[in-house]
Amino acid sequence: MTIDTSGRPRQIAPGIHHLGICHVYLNDVRFPMVGGKPIHLHLSNYMILGTEKTLLIDTGEPAGWEALSAQIDQVLNGRELNYLFPTHPEFLHSANLTRILDKYPECRVVGDVRDYEMYFPGCTDRMDAMPIRSEIDLGGGYEFVILEAPIKDLPASVWGYEKSQQALFCADAFSFAHINASVPGQDMTEYHLADECSLTTDELPGGVGQIRDNSAFILRAALYWLRYIDPNPLFAKVEKLFQEFPPKIVAPAHGHVIINPREVVPIIEAEMESVSGTSGTMADRVKVSA
């Protein structure tokens, strides 16, 4: 596996930037080439530049640190990094935490910092536990709200929402890739190709109609427990959250930035339902429990 950074950093809304890398599965027997090109998997970060403060979402992994570090510097353009918001304490999302704190001495870790005292001893003086619904004023109208994640990767998973741009940062939820990489009959190849890395969903060739079936692998891999549940209560929680925090942008950790969420999210939810438990519904519980 190698990494690719093409197209990033990229501003996706005023003051909001898409950073990060793609894993490139070159000459990997698990993931065949498509049209002579290797397939990619996003590992994304996002930066919010308020007029007073800046905030980075997730840290990426060690293999991508050099690239991400350069991207952060490019986007900050001489400014300080003030806040680091890890969406959850999983390796791919938090492994560069100490590196970021070492490089940016003003930076403080914010959000759900349970577990971090165990995992990053020596950094606790740089951590501020913030409960769900805490708001961080970044200046210039940029306000970042910490939200409970209805779809969690780990118990300490959290989402974030920037109010002025209506951007939702949803960690491992709503991940998908471009269908042009799909190989018929092989459901493990739903990745995008090299020149599509930084495209948003409204820029993808073929549009959102081709998202069907191409998020299934990511969902099965990243949200394994979906296969055991009825996902409809989760969808209801998501819908309720969307009503209170309506997103114009949904920015996942894995997958393209979603600029048209009202079109895309239902398609991904249909994929979630397709990989979720299929042997019963909530109504069947009544029969079992009776």
Binding site: K152, P155, W225, L226, R227, Y228, I229, D230, P231, P233, L234, G277, S279, G280, T281, D284, R285, K287, V288
Partner: peptide, 16 residues
């Protein structure tokens, strides 16, 4: 439930 948050939405097929 603190660890495996999704358990409350489990289906009755009881695979785990």
């Amino acid at each position: 439930l603190a660890k495996f948050h999704w358990l409350a939405q489990s289906l009755p097929d009881g695979v785990p």
